[in-house]
Design a protein around this nucleic acid. Structure first.
Length: 423
RNA sequence: GGAGAGGUGCCUGAGUGGCCGAAAGGGACGGUUUGCUAAACCGUUGUACUCGCAAGGGUACCGAGGGUUCGAAUCCCUCCCUCUCCGCCA
């Protein structure tokens, strides 16, 4: 959530920057300022009256003690009057404040200056490429056919048990999942992250804290009977560990990582783009999350990007990094780098990681702060990145590493899988 | 699912309807002193909003929301959460 003070003091700049995400938001800024003005006026009136009422109440107390009951009763008349007045003022104040809040939470984070202009994924900036695009043999198969051929991932069985988008991993397919999760977690540990195993469901407060609610309400599975949400990413529970927390400045940065299954409804998805592992309702992911000092968050973002690079290079997959344009960025992000691997049989780039700096946008919702050197409370910056999401890595790996003998497992993973080839 | 207890500041914990933003202890921070891995003593130690150049005011907050009252942490109602016991169970 954007800070109202910041909007007030940097109106022109805010309008310009927010328009990069979507021009329609710039208009809302005027409305925000108008509501802010109204709210503060209403609050001032109310507070003046409350101050008077408080004083009178105190006076009445003193008079009563002194036995001057008649005097006290005279003043009481005025307090009764004030009370009536305050009821209306309070209502008005609450109402405008609520309107302001409701509008404020619909506004996305301001993009960083380095975010390119653009509305669609095609306008993302390709900033880095690594690895050779493999030349596959004649008759190379897409991963969903390989999955069937070697009987390692069963989409039909998933359909029967749960529905489309819930695959069943079998034998070496299941083992590969477990291997990758362990590999990613070990790498995160080596990079100084503390391993977290959080709940896989969260309450609405947590969903709000990281910005999924109310923005992505329809994208999360909701358990109505207990009013809980299945997590769409470990980012939600792990970042929310720090909701309503005042951290120590010297503890920053705080580095946590965790593996969880992720659940997404993906309402509205369809077609060839969602075949096989390309888009699932449930998938596995290791997420890295940092709570950072505002002065260092962009350096930390680089560090996280490098961590993800390292993973992809150890897996020997061709990848590229995109700097997302304003229109393709997520609601809460100030700067996002997407990682895509090239899946050779599909001849497509697949997004496997999204690594972002949220600056203080989440922190403002979470109320996660630290006391700075001047003794003032200051919001932290939050960052997170997929390191990594499994399904598309598996898709790329199956397709790119297929040989007539079977599918070769990258060296770095062999100690985890216990086998070198799927055949 | 059944029964009970409770939610107060960084923590523990007290609190008679006005003198309570809140005792006391602990912790943390600053200082004095004696000095060896420490003790004693003194002091400081809420957040948000708001008015003001500032000094300094004001308002709100004792789980949340209502109510009673001139006045509520304190009384009443509703809800939420946590804990304990029983049941069920990995």
């Amino acid at each position: 959530m954007l800070q109202i003070n910041y909007i007030r003091e940097n109106t022109a700049d805010v309008k310009k920057r927010i328009a990069k995400k979507n021009p329609k938001h710039a208009e809302a800024i005027d409305e925000v300022l108008k509501l802010d003005e109204e709210t503060r006026n209403a609050k001032r009136d109310l507070e003046n009256n409350l101050a008077e009422a408080n004083q009178l109440a105190k006076k009445i107390g003193d008079l009563m003690k002194g036995g001057q009951k008649d005097e006290a009763d005279k003043i009481k008349a005025r307090t009764t009057e004030l009370k009536e007045l305050n009821k209306t003022l309070e209502e008005k104040q609450k109402q405008t404040e609520q309107q302001l809040f409701d509008l404020l939470i619909t506004l996305p984070n301001l993009p960083h200056d380095s975010v390119p202009e653009g509305k669609t994924p095609e306008e993302n900036l390709n900033i880095f490429e690594h690895g050779e695009i493999p030349k596959l043999l004649e008759g190379a198969l897409p991963h969903w056919e390989l999955a069937a051929k070697y009987d390692i991932i069963d989409f039909e069985l998933g359909n029967k048990i749960a529905g489309a988008g819930f695959p069943v991993y079998k034998g070496k397919g299941a083992r590969l999942q477990r291997a990758m999760i362990n590999f990613f977690l070990d790498e995160a540990t080596k990079a100084g992250y503390r391993e977290i195993m959080p709940p896989n469901v969260v309450n609405a407060d947590s969903g709000f804290g990281t910005g999924q609610l109310p923005d992505k309400e329809g994208q999360m599975y909701h358990i109505g009977i207990d009013d809980l949400y299945l997590i769409p990413t470990a980012e939600v529970p792990i970042t929310n560990l720090y909701r309503d927390v005042i951290v120590k400045e010297e503890e920053l940065p705080i580095k946590n990582a965790g593996y969880t299954p992720c659940f997404r409804r993906e309402a509205g998805s369809y077609g060839a783009h969602v075949r096989g592992l390309n888009r699932l309702h449930q998938f596995d992911k290791v997420e890295i999350v940092q709570i950072a000092h505002p002065d260092h968050s962009y350096k930390i973002l680089d560090e996280m990007v490098n961590h993800v690079k390292g993973l992809l290079e150890k897996l020997e997959l061709p990848y590229r990094i995109l700097r997302l344009c304003g229109g393709d960025m997520s609601f809460a992000s100030a700067l996002t780098f997407d990682f895509e691997t090239y899946s050779a049989a599909q001849q497509r780039w697949l997004e496997v990681s999204s690594t972002s700096n949220f600056e203080n946008f989440q922190a403002n919702r979470l109320k996660c702060r630290f006391k700075n050197k001047d003794g003032k409370m200051q919001l932290v910056h939050t960052l997170n990145g997929s390191a990594l999401a499994l399904p598309r890595i598996v898709a790329t790996l199956l397709e790119n590493n297929q040989t007539p003998e079977g599918i070769k497992i990258p060296k770095a993973l062999v100690p985890y899988t216990g086998f070198e080839i799927i055949n």
